[in-house]
Amino acid sequence: MRLNDFEFRRLVEEHQSMVFSIALRLVGDHGLAEEVAQDCLVELYRSLDRLESEDHVRFWLRRVAVHRATDALRRRAVRPEGRAECWGEEHDGGSSMTSSGALERRMETVLLSLPEAARVVIVLRYQEDMRSDEIATLLGQPVATVKSNLQRGLGLMRKKADVMLREFVRE
């Protein structure tokens, strides 16, 4: 693909939410997620020659975002559970005071407490609405591995959600 700066900016604006959201849900830290997302899009600018279409760009961005986010997480050894507690207040603008906002934050906290492999699959499945075979292609894994991680993640989320719901009700 050959784009001028104006066209590239349009591409950034189109995909920035996707890239930022993937990074944020994987690393659980706002500042780190922003850095990772910017890195992905700067790398996109360098790699445009190799990309053929909008679909290819989307596929490429998702893959790079996942890899960079997991790399950043391992490098910094961030404890996502700790960071996720303030994440909701920055974005909800007060809605975290409502029961719905509190529940949503807890869901994010539960998500961030999952093992990395399960978390990646759940983000791609539910945020990006990707099928298991598409996730497998993106991650370069067998479909069976993706499904296994998905089931494991959902099972863990269910257990943790039950515990948190009971705590929430008590509060």
């Binding site: 900016r9 950034v12 604006e13 920035q16 939410s17 996707m18 890239v19 930022f20 959201s21 944020l24 706002h30 922003e34 997302a37 910017q38 974005h91 945020q127």
Partner: peptide, 9 residues
Amino acid sequence: RVAAPDGFA
């Protein structure tokens, strides 16, 4: 999806 921060682009 969550909106990217202001000034991201």
